[in-house]
Design a binder for these strands. Structure first.
Lengths: 215, 215
DNA sequence: CGGTAAGCTGACGACATGACAGGACAAGTG
DNA sequence: CACTTGTCCTGTCATGTCGTCAGCTTACCG
């Protein structure tokens, strides 16, 4: 799956090299959580990893290159999000539970990978194709699943024919992602986490099924 | 209203000084649209403005300081967003129109101020209080208005008592802002702008009124 | 015309960047 | 055990940005 890991100058990395490389990635990840992306410097990452800047450049072209690598790793782990919807039903009472569990799982995933996802989001918003490819990869499973559900209910005539299922699904997924990023912002509006979740679940439910949840 | 403009070292800026300062801000704004925030350098902004880096530091402590200033200006212009909802009704057919016009106006505002709002969003997501204060200022008028409408309908028993109006409103506003930032991302999902807008309007309508629009 | 304050810049030390050549180290070979 | 080989890491250097300061230029006013 993962083609051999290579250094910038083309050599294949051995055991020791891969360890160093991973350590650099780990330290970078930590730095991203504790300081703004703009202020992350190669020299700091290297120092934190107990190595030198030159070593960093042996494995990554620059900070952005390493960030992309981290983002890819995160995207690879995002498969778990798909399970939140696999085999779930959007009918009757179970729909409300499905919505709640989706919101829960989604926020949890975002909270865990908070720092790197923030950078991915920025890169995507700035129009960098590499980043929004990754962003898509992360959101795709949930997005497709939601779109399918909307399309299915649409076929039953429960939802207006001329809305695009992918657009509804995309809007909902975008909302979840943004809400997760701005949880602190909500508290400034006097909204606590515990109050935010049901609201998001309600909106997801409304968006997918077109009607209020039957609790 | 605007307290006197001052240089970093405390002098009051005169006519010429204010011109230079504004020119630097304009150039910074342009640079933000054309290159990633991370890569915006003082020296480039200064060169573009036909002046020297030292001059830049006379008016702003650093790039971030200038960005905050730009963001404040944008926030000040965000009053227009309030008008999108002033005196509008969420009853019957007019509700659908209200929702559509809100989405239209919101996306338009975001498109216009795209670059700076992106940076504000990042700053807020990174937990910088100065930035999320500004983000709140921009979103507040719409958010409060929506929250009031939800609360009103809630009083009439049309919406579940135990959802927090501010949480619903905040979620919707957050969705609009994020959708506006990621319009390119939607096109990768095969969703065109023209299809996105009605979906967002639908979700807003559902969220505020709790039921499908009567077109 | 001379004084004063605003406005601007050249130059500088400090530091991050990114490239290279060469030293350190582990593993295999005779 | 000495020797070779290839991986891995670092010291060092040219380049370029950062942020500061002293001092020159410009505008305004009596």
């Amino acid at each position: 799956m993962t083609g051999q890991v290579r250094t910038v100058d083309g050599r294949v990395a051995g055991r020791r090299g891969q360890e160093t490389r991973q350590k650099l990635l780990d330290c970078l990840s930590e730095m991203l959580s504790s300081s703004p992306y703009r202020d992350v410097k190669v020299i700091d990452v290297a120092r934190k990893a107990g190595t030198s800047p030159a070593t960093f450049y042996q494995y990554f072209p620059d900070v952005e290159g390493a960030v992309l690598e981290l983002a890819e790793q995160t995207a690879a782990e995002s498969g778990g999000l798909a399970e939140l919807l696999e085999g779930r039903s959007w009918a009757g009472k179970s729909a409300w539970q499905t919505a709640q569990e989706l919101v829960d799982g989604f926020l949890e995933f975002w909270r865990k990978n908070d720092a790197i996802l923030r950078v991915v989001d920025l890169g995507a918003a700035e129009g960098d194709k590499r980043f929004y490819k990754i962003r898509m990869k992360v959101l795709n499973s949930v997005n497709n699943s939601l779109a399918d559900s909307v399309a299915a209910l649409q076929a039953k005539g429960r939802i207006d024919k001329d809305v695009n299922p992918a657009a509804i699904a995309g809007s909902l997924v975008t909302m979840l992602a943004a809400a997760a990023s701005h949880q602190k912002g909500f508290s400034s509006w006097g909204v606590k986490q515990a109050e935010l979740k049901p609201s998001l679940a309600l909106l997801v439910h409304l968006g997918v099924t077109g009607k209020k949840p039957a609790k």
